[in-house]
Amino acid sequence: MIFSVCRGWVALRGADGMLVAAARRGVVLSCVTLAARKGLWVLDDSRPHLAAPPRSGHASAARGVIHWNTPTFPRDPDSCEDSLENALVILARCQPYESALATWESAFRQRLVDPAELERAPLPPIARRLVEEARPFADSGTETIFLTRLAWLDLAITPQVWILGHRVDFLIGERLIVQVDGGHHVGAQRSSDIAHDALLTLHGYHVIRIGYDQLMNQWLWVQRTILAAIGQRLHRAA
């Protein structure tokens, strides 16, 4: 069954509610909202982020974060979703740098955007920095954030290293391993992690295991712990 959404728009019963609401308000889904809908890593998408043309007063009634902007790439007038390229440019100015970098790297890793196209576009300075620094082979958003926060440290930090039959999240120097646990580290996965930690210890490695909440919300403790280990030269081979 079809119903009228607004002038020029109709929808089927059961249509995506966010798209219907966007059509009614004359906005498009963009920024972190669109990134999350495309399966990219985002830090927070609790409120809808929308984009609208400058001086589009009727969009002010929309609920959520509204980005009034002139798009870098022309918007399809028949779509209620922004292009992912436009969403990334908006996100670059909306989100903290490390979070934006994680989302951009997620888009590059999944090959959902072409970095070369973005490089040729007239990007604002913060987006230009992101397209230059984003790595297409980053494994996850937590990896990006961890590496960004320790970029000042004058030590080799290597992500996703295979050691003794398993992949570890980070190897600092030669012997210090940092593992970041997510919600899936339970049951059989947890038992496997504990067994591998023991094997690493028996072979002379030192393991620091932290949780997602500690990485995101208790960073000072995480950094102090890592620096204490480095101060004791636990990152060095004997």
Rank of each mutant, 00 (worst) to 15 (best):
residue 206 H to D: 11
residue 82 D to N: 08
residue 112 L to V: 10
residue 61 A to V: 11
residue 223 Q to R: 15
residue 102 A to M: 12
residue 9 W to S: 03
residue 63 R to N: 05
residue 13 R to W: 14
residue 194 I to K: 04
residue 20 V to Y: 09
residue 226 I to H: 04
residue 197 D to V: 01
residue 219 W to M: 03
residue 82 D to R: 04
residue 27 V to L: 11
residue 207 V to H: 05
residue 136 P to H: 04
residue 191 S to M: 11
residue 150 L to T: 10
residue 41 W to N: 01
residue 170 F to H: 07
residue 37 R to V: 01
residue 158 T to F: 02
residue 57 G to W: 15
residue 210 I to Y: 04
residue 230 I to E: 05
residue 238 A to S: 14
residue 172 I to E: 05
residue 102 A to V: 11
residue 67 H to Y: 06
residue 108 F to M: 09
residue 70 T to N: 01
residue 207 V to F: 08
residue 209 R to I: 06
residue 83 S to F: 00
residue 64 G to R: 01
residue 211 G to L: 08
residue 114 D to F: 01
residue 141 G to V: 07
residue 107 A to S: 06
residue 129 R to Q: 14
residue 216 M to W: 11
residue 111 R to L: 08
residue 141 G to C: 06
residue 145 I to S: 00
residue 200 L to V: 12
residue 222 V to G: 04
residue 9 W to A: 05
residue 225 T to K: 13
residue 29 L to S: 09
residue 117 E to Q: 13
residue 47 R to M: 13
residue 235 H to W: 12
residue 8 G to K: 09
residue 11 A to Q: 06
residue 52 A to Q: 02
residue 56 S to M: 06
residue 222 V to P: 02
residue 9 W to H: 08
residue 90 I to M: 03
residue 147 L to Q: 14
residue 221 W to K: 09
residue 233 R to T: 05
residue 83 S to L: 05
residue 42 V to W: 02
residue 4 S to Y: 12
residue 81 E to L: 11
residue 181 D to G: 10
residue 131 V to W: 03
residue 55 R to S: 12
residue 28 V to D: 00
residue 30 S to A: 15
residue 236 R to K: 15
residue 8 G to V: 09
residue 224 R to Y: 07
residue 192 S to G: 07
residue 140 S to F: 06
residue 68 W to E: 04
residue 69 N to L: 15
residue 100 A to K: 03
residue 120 R to F: 03
residue 69 N to Y: 14
residue 7 R to W: 11
residue 197 D to Y: 05
residue 69 N to E: 11
residue 184 H to S: 13
residue 164 L to P: 05
residue 43 L to I: 05
residue 72 T to L: 14
residue 178 V to C: 03
